[in-house]
Amino acid sequence: MNKVLLLLTTLVLTLSNDSSDKVICRQGSVSFFSYTSVENIKAQNNQVSSIIDFESSKIAVSMLMNAFVFEKALMREHFNESYIESDIYPKATFEGEILDFEPAMEGAQIRIVKGLFTMHGVAEELEIKTKIEKSGSTFTLTGSFETLVESYDINIPPLLAGNIAKTISVDFRFEYEPYEEK
């Protein structure tokens, strides 16, 4: 019994130290859209980082809120200052799991990614349908989902409520390469 335990422990330890079973994306893009009859707002962030661990099928995403670029330069200031309060909540993160993920499978697979998305200090449970494409050692994850603004405790003045959609659609695209520990 003790031998089995020792074996298991070493196995777990080696697994957790091994880095070749992870892939990383350093310049992923996330964009969001708000369509209303008054105004269309679009923003894009091309510096989103993400990492996938094949062993546990776990995925993490982290983005800096002030890296979102808007059509109107001043919107970025308003977004960071008055809505998302990026000096208090500088990052949005996602931690989750790719359900039924098959890392070895070449080509495309459509999977559900389930996890916690944290933005503006509020954590929301999300289930996102994601297309995973593998070619050689690189992975590409693409997908889109919709989320409600009101879930994130963001203060929108009544006068501007018509300018911001209740449902925000989010698109993402991450390209991963093998992760090398520095």
Binding site: S16, S49, I51, S56, K58, A60, V61, S62, E95
Partner: peptide, 11 residues
């Protein structure tokens, strides 16, 4: 460790 690790690695 696995769960916490990923975000820390990104950090």
């Amino acid at each position: 460790v696995f769960g916490q690790d990923l975000l820390n690695l990104l950090e």
